[in-house]
Simulated assay, not measured.
Amino acid sequence: MIALGCDHGGFAMMQDVIKYLDEQGLPYKNFGTFTADSCDYPVIAEAVSRAVTGGECDKGVLICGTGIGMSIAANKFSGIRAALCGDSYSAEMTRRHNDANILVLGARVIGLGLALKILEIFLATPFEGGRHARRIALVSDLEKCK
């Protein structure tokens, strides 16, 4: 199950992401926003992050204008590794090496075709584990810093 969330800046792109997921037969839960009206991205990032950390969803996708705000907000949650990706290689490597569990896209920064390719790669790429698992554990230890 994929947790979806966007703010008003990502609303139009999210509609296309939903269409793509429907076409692929991939299950998702939409945490909003459900209109193009202005809203607060941290509220959406929280809902998606809690769904992922709570086990309700395996991965998440967040979309805002640049992707920066959603990335910052989502990465405040212990266990979240949200990656803002603007190219295919980053999408692949963040899954292989960082075990990213939330993909963040900037709707005002990249085009729809590239966004859907990034999404496809993110969802299809496995985590390699091995030496990368040790590094993910080190990152998790940083979450304990105050």
Rank of each mutant, 00 (worst) to 15 (best):
G5N: 06
G5A: 02
C6L: 02
C6V: 01
C6R: 03
D7W: 00
D7N: 06
D7V: 04
H8A: 10
G9Q: 01
G9F: 04
G9N: 08
G10W: 02
G10K: 00
F11A: 04
F11L: 00
A12P: 04
A12H: 13
A12W: 07
A12L: 14
M13W: 02
M13F: 12
M13C: 05
M13Y: 11
M13L: 15
M14K: 15
M14W: 00
Q15K: 13
D16G: 13
D16W: 11
D16Q: 15
V17L: 09
I18S: 08
I18N: 08
I18Y: 05
Y20L: 07
Y20E: 10
Y20Q: 06
L21I: 05
L21Y: 07
L21H: 06
D22F: 02
D22V: 09
E23I: 07
E23D: 15
E23Q: 15
E23L: 15
E23C: 12
E23T: 12
E23S: 15
Q24A: 10
Q24P: 07
Q24S: 08
Q24H: 09
G25M: 11
G25C: 06
G25D: 04
L26V: 14
L26S: 11
L26T: 13
Y28W: 07
Y28K: 08
Y28S: 10
Y28R: 05
K29A: 07
K29I: 11
F31W: 11
F31N: 00
G32S: 04
T33V: 09
T33M: 11
F34A: 07
T35F: 13
T35L: 13
A36R: 07
A36F: 06
D37Q: 13
D37A: 14
D37R: 10
S38G: 01
S38N: 01
S38A: 09
C39Y: 04
C39I: 09
C39Q: 03
D40V: 10
Y41P: 05
Y41G: 06
